[in-house]
Computed example of a mutant assay.
Amino acid sequence: MNDIPSITAVGESGRHHGVMRGAQGPAGTSFKHEHLAAILADGLKDGFFEVHAENYMGAGGPPHRALTAIREHYPLSLHGVCMSIGGPDVLDVAHLARFRELVIRYEPMLVSEHLAWSSHGGQFFNDLLPLPYTQATLEQVCEHIDQVQDAIKRPLLLENPSTYVAFASSTLSEAEFIRMVVQRTGCGLLLDVNNVFVSASNHGFSAAAYLDALPLEAVGEIHLAGHSEQHDDENEPLLIDSHDCAISSSVWDLYRDVVSRIGAKPTLVEWDSNLPSWPVLRAQALSARHIMSPG
């Protein structure tokens, strides 16, 4: 392979955890099996790759063979999408156990989940749904995060959502809610810059003011992605966090602002559908790296 990062940190088990020597702000991409051969032939120096945990909860087979091939050379970010951290029900203990087993099996550099809910009454939905930001929801979310962190024996990074509607019953702003969760649970923050831009545009608030209110000192990872532009039923503009195109210039500008505030952090480019060729996706990650280290 041409571009293999140096991996130096070793965990209690004696296996590499995948912390990269001299890389305070590595840049990575979503790992898609279509890109496996290209990555192995022409990889991403000092990079990392993120996978959705639920795609690897089987015992073996082609998904694990491909992920093992990547993990031999690169650190991983394990990103959960179905834990339903914000849901009203108790966490699915079988799902949490499978999630824990993946953390043990691959020893990822980063582990994250969403501030959202996606299941109710035993039914799972193909959406990450918004929460009412109330004291009752805060208690539930903190309890769930504590449960996850107790299971995986490490801090969880919580991702700020992209939203299209808001609850009239909310008594806290989203940023205030996230700050309180971080303070109470000790979890970290996965700052999705595209989500900030999408939500700010959809709800008409200031992205800069939102960032001011967040616990930016807790950011452990940054996400970047493309979004699509649609119109709602009243023909008003509506941005969708679609992950199916290149990162917009507005999101790159907001990312530059974030980096100027908090410095370089591991940054992940998400691209989940309408996949480009590997060189196109790789170039997006290299753009993020250049912003973090312009010299």
Rank of each mutant, 00 (worst) to 15 (best):
M1G: 14
S6W: 11
A9K: 12
A9L: 12
S13K: 13
R15P: 13
H17N: 12
M20E: 03
M20A: 02
R21C: 03
A23D: 02
G25V: 02
P26D: 01
A27S: 10
G28L: 00
F31W: 02
K32I: 10
E34H: 14
H35Y: 14
H35L: 05
A38F: 09
A38V: 08
D42N: 14
D42F: 06
L44M: 07
K45Q: 14
D46A: 07
A59Y: 06
G60E: 14
G60W: 05
G61K: 06
H64P: 00
R65L: 12
L67C: 05
T68D: 15
G80H: 04
G80L: 01
M83C: 08
S84W: 09
I85Y: 07
P88A: 06
P88L: 04
L91S: 06
D92T: 04
A94P: 05
H95T: 07
H95M: 15
H95R: 14
A97M: 13
R98F: 09
R100P: 11
R100Y: 09
Y106M: 13
P108S: 01
L110Q: 04
L110Y: 04
V111P: 00
S112P: 02
H114Y: 09
W117D: 02
S118C: 15
D127V: 10
L131W: 08
L131S: 02
P132D: 14
P132V: 13
Q135T: 15
E139R: 15
Q140C: 13
C142R: 09
C142E: 10
I145V: 15
V148P: 11
Q149D: 09
D150I: 13
L157F: 06
L158C: 05
E159T: 06
N160L: 07
N160R: 07
S162N: 10
T163G: 08
Y164A: 04
Y164Q: 04
S170A: 11
E174L: 11
A175F: 08
E176N: 12
R179V: 07
R179M: 06
V182P: 01
G188F: 02
L191R: 00
V193P: 00
N194I: 12
F197M: 06
A200L: 07
S201P: 09
H203G: 10
S206V: 15
A207L: 08
A209P: 01
Y210S: 00
Y210F: 15
L211M: 08
P215I: 12
L216D: 01
E217C: 04
G220P: 00
I222V: 11
L224Y: 10
E234F: 10
N235L: 13
E236I: 08
P237S: 01
I240W: 15
D241C: 04
H243P: 00
H243D: 03
H243Q: 02
A246K: 09
S250H: 10
W252V: 09
D253S: 12
S260R: 09
S260K: 09
A264M: 02
V269W: 03
E270I: 10
E270D: 07
W271D: 02
N274L: 14
L275T: 05
P276V: 14
R282Y: 03
A283M: 08
A285D: 03
P294C: 02
